[in-house]
Design a protein around this nucleic acid. Structure first.
Length: 479
RNA sequence: CGGGGUGUGGCACAGCUUGGUAGUGCGCUUGGUUCGGGACCAAGAGGCCGCUGGUUCGAGUCCAGUCACUCCGACCA
């Protein structure tokens, strides 16, 4: 049999089947594996390393703003979860419950946390007495469980990792500012570290978080035009504070309720990275979170001096970058494919010819173009190349988002776009939940994503019912 | 929760209609030749065919039950 007929495990083309492409990338890039536990995945070392980089980056951003990390219990007694009416209604349907401890049935069953507002509230009640105790700026990195019917690696799993910030403030204004500030942190992180552009804005009444007064969201668009709710920041008013009886003595010596926020992003962001930047050759990682930023591939490594030179370059670059030198005896071509599949932003080839010329080859994962660079000032060249990868990823994603954002001024236009295009639709809305539901039914799943802060006035009437328009809404299908 | 589908070495599957020694490809191990885009040759290792029971001289194959996973719908970071 001819060698080119050899069966090579391929990644399904994203144009053929985007869902299958996604699953292939997750597996071939060794990000995650299915587990024996229904709806739960194994996050493999390479995938977890991405999460660790995300954590390190975000954690620094939180701490720069004065937030402190804490850890809450993983279980919530049913009575505690039930204290805020809207909240329990929203989350009870997808809670996992512990009913037995050891050998004995529990007197009160425990929910495995789907989110920790109630636990934070119980604690805030104990530690907040005076305006001097405010603000409380807490964050926790943890896992949560939501009993999902259908799951997909990173995008929706029964258990997932996230961070949830929970803050308490003296005034409503301060809490509202915090809500928007943290949405801004997410937006900056997406742009600066993940190279993902996104629309941000407020959720409609129908789509907001259970128990929130306002929910803000970041909505990046995936390569296929489908939205992913990429992070949320909630303003709770003093609703939970009242439900949990959290009070403090104000500067004027009166008893007051503090104002609260919460905000979170999850391992779903890894799914966003895959679906925003990936291509038919596999994953493409933004340099800021890539576990390996530069893969050094020695060429003809058996020849004298090649490995030594490669190690020298590794040691040099490792001072500044996350570098991996692959000395294994896999073929050169195999290594090229392997690191491309795993999305390493930059490949460095070093072989006998390069050594002769005091140069090496840099290959961008985005363009796959080979550039010969001098070994003098190599670190600078690498830094520049990584920056270029980031910029190109961002530009490409932004272009896709722009190209797939449409405007609809009539119901017919809206339905036509929903039926024939994939992407976001900007359209005016009257503010009624009925219209949201109607549009969702008529289009088979297009929902409101957010109301952006800078609202364009596309027309004066609701795209659905024709009554006077209140807001411009970005609509789309979601994961 | 409703409707399909699938369970056979690590992975992807064939074998089942018509019962009779467990197969193929990839991967893995060892040795050798290769090495600037997924190398090749040779020799190996690895499976009580999801589980339980039944029919039979004999079950991966037929029957009954059961469990798990998965896809499509309604709900969701």
């Amino acid at each position: 049999m001819a060698k080119n007929e050899k069966m090579v495990e391929q990644i399904t083309s994203m144009d053929v089947d985007f869902a299958q492409w996604y699953t292939d990338v997750v597996k071939k890039a060794e990000l995650a594996d299915y587990s024996g536990v229904k709806g739960c995945m194994v996050i493999r070392p390479y995938g977890y390393a991405i999460w660790e980089n995300i954590q390190r980056d975000l954690d620094a951003r939180f701490k720069a703003l004065g937030h402190e990390n804490v850890y809450m219990p993983m279980f919530i007694p049913e009575s505690l979860l039930q204290k805020e009416k809207d909240h329990v209604e929203g989350f009870a349907p997808e809670c996992a419950w512990v009913t037995v401890g050891g050998q004995n049935p529990l007197a009160e069953r425990l929910a495995v946390r789907p989110t920790s507002e109630t636990l934070f509230c119980e604690h805030f009640r104990n530690v907040i007495q005076s305006y001097r105790d405010l603000p409380k700026l807490y964050n926790q990195w943890c896992n949560v469980v939501r009993w999902e019917k259908t799951t997909r690696p990173f995008l929706r799993t029964s258990e997932f990792l996230w961070q949830e910030g929970h803050t308490m403030h003296e005034t409503e204004e301060e809490a509202r500012e915090e809500t928007k500030r943290m949405l801004g942190v997410y937006r900056d992180f997406y742009a600066e570290s993940l190279a993902i552009p996104a629309y941000t804005g407020r959720k409609t009444e129908k789509e907001k978080f259970a128990g929130a007064v306002e929910t803000y969201t970041i909505e990046p668009m995936m390569h296929n035009g489908v939205a992913l709710q990429g992070g949320t920041s909630h303003f709770f008013g003093d609703g939970f504070a009242r439900a949990f009886d959290i009070t403090f003595t104000g500067r004027d010596n009166t008893i007051r309720y503090p104002f609260q926020t919460s905000w979170g992003v999850s391992t779903r962001m890894i799914g966003a990275i895959i679906m925003t930047h990936g291509d038919d050759n596999g994953l493409i990682l933004p340099p800021a979170v890539a576990p390996v930023q530069v893969a050094i591939i020695p060429v003809a490594q058996h020849k004298e001096g090649v490995l030594e030179k490669a190690r020298e370059l590794r040691d040099l670059l490792a001072k500044k970058f996350r570098v991996k030198l692959d000395e294994s005896d896999y073929s050169t071509g195999w290594k090229f494919s392997q690191y491309e599949m795993k999305g390493v932003p930059l490949r460095l080839e070093i072989g006998p010819r390069d050594i002769e010329n005091n140069s090496c080859v840099l290959v961008s994962r985005v363009t796959r173009e080979k550039t010969f660079v001098s070994l003098d000032h190599l670190a600078e060249s690498v830094e520049k190349a990584l920056q270029t990868v980031h910029d190109e990823l961002y530009a490409r994603a932004l272009e896709n988002q722009k190209a797939r954002t449409y405007e609809a001024r009539t119901r017919e236009e809206f339905l036509d776009i929903a039926a024939n295009k994939s992407g976001f639709i900007k359209a005016m809305w009257c503010g009624e939940t009925e219209c949201e539901e109607q549009l969702k039914d008529l289009t088979g799943g297009v929902k409101s994503r957010c109301i952006p802060p800078e609202e364009e006035r596309l027309s004066d009437v609701c795209v659905c019912c024709g009554k006077p328009a209140r807001h411009m809404v970005i609509w789309g299908r979601q994961y």
